[in-house]
Design a protein around this nucleic acid. Structure first.
Length: 593
RNA sequence: GGGGACGUAGUUCAGUUGGUUAGAACGCUGCCCUGUCACGGCAGAGGUCGCGAGUUCGAGUCUCGUCGUCCCCGCCA
């Protein structure tokens, strides 16, 4: 192939098939870089040596598809190109065949600069010819293959589950597929194969996995596509530790496929600790944690600074920011207001640390020590402002942490150039901060609907010790649920499931679901639970996100060959589209207004 | 559903306070060139300034609307 020739091939006759990447016509000698997915090689056409072939070569243009037959020749020392792998050799062409011409593309695959994404997506077939996209798609293949091999090697079976299945309206919106045979009825595309994989456990396939497409009809983000690929797995008789081990093993294999030797096991942290120290359930540990700064204050300090000592107080540290300008101070105040707007429970402010250093230098000094802050580090205390006689709710206390977490990320993004924590150093332990977040709460309170919701999903098993609190204090029940997080991105989420019907019923009750409701939604599954269900659990990880991070990209679109835009449109095939009246009639569907 | 950024040549962009024929680089076409590799030189073609209204003697520039792309919030059990 075009990228494989080396000095040891000198003298051999070769056939190269590929695209014209660039043409350099010097008159009596023409150089053409021929490209395929393996790389490129320089072809030489010399008028003095072979005028007929030279004549043919002069008609070649960018992206023409050609076959070249010739001899590999070692280049003179002064004409070696160190920028390409084949740079020490070239091919003198004896025979040239034009296999196909090309219209002038809207942009060239060999072009260096950025290209408008709209154009890239419309002409995705050209875009995918670019070196970076070829590398990303190749990486994706390598990663998926390594994961398959690792899981298969551990006795997991890859088993397919249906794409056309039953809508279970809970969680994300379903993509629906109308049934022609049953007018007015719909299949749903799976948000995940959750119930099928649990049923496979009931069926005795004790180790299942699948690299599988999932569908969610929700608004998109840079790291969210409506169809995405999960590494989905489930096993019978596991402890959480066993799941961690399996995931760490295949992630190690996946990273190895990308040339990275990942240390395992990963750090573990409870949900509560994650909230306290990072204000979020998917901490980016490349940056310092938040620090509890309560010990820095005496009661007198608090009164003097008008700070509410009963509220949680933490400080954010962003390394190497240096002195900040008045404008930046104003931006901090604006961020403080923005946080209050975003979270109505947030009763705190981002305190002006410079002012604190003036007013109460000994307090500020203690805070610096607590945070381990150097003189160039930006310190932002987050405190509640004293308001007499007001008692603070638990939600308000938590908001101190979560709003702090948001501020931490926002400031980290803003000062990325200064602290450089997001840049790759080549030091694996620093570049890839994995962790397991464990012991998620079982339920979340829904203010709008005035009821408890399953934080993970309703098939997640509660902690053994918390069973008795299901009715009395649902908010404090911990789940056997865990997330695997990398650099602040949630890669995957899983749990040990409920395998006993009686407990499953208790959970539905706690969620305010009647037996009839539960039965109408999940009847087939509740039936299955009653026929000898083994204890089981599993996890699902986003393949796209793993590849995105490995490729060093900021958007999933860079690692998905044919992605959708923010409005869920495929620019190349132009989908979705209206369909004709006959099709609708067949399906018994009428479009409203 | 909400907030923000952007939209000018095939591509990436510039375009001053509203004022003559809207520019540059790359790409493209032609000619010249025997060692280039982001080849070089000369010449040339290429524009509904996203679209529609409005203000104005005059709009790429100001206003309103609309469409599209991107980012964020909501949403994503």
């Amino acid at each position: 192939m075009c990228g494989e020739l080396r000095p040891e091939h000198t003298g051999s006759q070769v056939v190269l098939l590929g695209w014209v990447n660039r043409r350099r016509d010097l008159g009596n000698v023409i150089f053409i870089d021929i490209r395929d997915r393996s790389g490129m090689t320089q072809l030489v056409f010399d008028k003095g040596v072979n005028p007929a072939v030279h004549e043919k070569a002069s008609a070649l243009r960018s992206e023409y598809v050609i076959a070249a037959i010739g001899k590999v020749r070692r280049r003179d020392a002064d004409t070696v190109n160190k920028n390409i792998a084949t740079g020490e050799v070239e091919v003198t062409v004896d025979e040239l065949k034009l296999l196909n011409e090309s219209k002038l593309p809207p942009f060239l695959p060999s072009e260096a600069g950025p290209i408008n994404e709209e154009v890239r997506l419309k002409y995705r077939y050209i875009d995918l010819r670019r070196e970076n996209m070829q590398a990303n798609i190749q990486l994706r293949h390598n990663v998926a293959l390594a994961i398959r091999q690792d899981l298969a090697g551990r006795g997991f079976l890859e088993i397919e589950t249906p794409f056309m299945t039953r809508s279970t309206p809970e969680g994300a919106r379903d993509y629906l597929v109308p049934s022609r045979v049953h007018p007015g009825e719909f299949y749903a595309l799976p948000q995940s194969p959750q119930l099928f994989k649990q049923i496979l456990m009931i069926s005795g396939f004790d180790k299942y996995f699948q690299i599988v497409r999932c569908f969610r009809d929700e608004d998109l983000r840079a790291d969210r596509q409506p169809e995405f690929t999960q590494i989905d797995l489930e096993m019978s008789f596991p402890q959480p530790d066993r799941v961690y081990e399996v995931v760490e093993s295949f992630l190690k294999a996946a990273f190895k496929a990308a040339g990275i030797d990942l240390p395992t096991p990963f750090v573990r942290m409870s949900y509560d600790q994650a909230i306290r120290e990072y204000g979020i359930d998917k901490p980016d540990m490349r940056l310092p944690a938040m620090t509890n700064i309560r010990p820095a204050f005496t009661d007198e300090d608090l009164a003097d600074l008008r700070i509410d000592g009963t509220m949680n107080m933490v400080a954010i540290r962003i390394p190497n920011v240096g002195k900040i300008s008045d404008r930046e101070k104003k931006e901090l105040r604006a961020l403080s207001e923005e946080l209050a707007k975003r979270n109505k429970d947030f009763a705190g402010v981002l305190y002006d640390f410079a002012q604190m250093e003036k007013k109460r230098p000994q307090v500020a000094a203690k805070i610096r020590v607590l945070c381990k802050a150097g003189t160039d580090d930006l310190v932002v205390p987050i405190v509640g402002i004293a308001a007499d006689g007001k008692t603070r709710s638990a939600a308000s206390q938590k908001a101190q942490y979560t709003s702090g977490g948001e501020a931490r990320l926002e400031l980290a993004r803003k000062y990325a150039d200064k602290h450089k924590a997001f840049e790759r150093t080549g030091d694996v332990a620093r570049d890839f901060k994995f962790l397991w977040v464990t012991d998620f709460p079982m339920f979340e309170y829904d203010d709008k609907e005035n009821r408890w919701n399953a934080a993970h999903h309703p098939f997640t098993s509660p902690h053994e010790q918390d069973m008795d609190k299901l009715q009395s204090d649902p908010g404090s029940v911990r789940a056997l649920a865990y997330d695997v997080v990398l650099n602040g991105t949630e890669l995957g989420s899983g749990s040990i499931r409920i395998h006993r019907q009686d407990i499953q019923r208790q959970i539905f009750t706690a969620l305010g679901m009647t037996d009839d409701e539960a039965r109408s939604r999940f009847g087939f599954f509740l039936d299955a639970l009653e026929y000898g269900t083994p204890p089981h659990g599993g996890i699902a990880l986003g393949l796209d996100r793993i590849v995105m991070i490995l490729a060093g990209e900021d958007s999933l679109r860079e690692v998905i060959p044919f992605p959708k835009t923010a409005k869920a449109i495929d620019m190349m095939v132009d989908a979705p589209t209206p369909v004709n009246e006959t099709q609708l009639k067949d399906l018994g569907i009428k479009i409203r207004g």
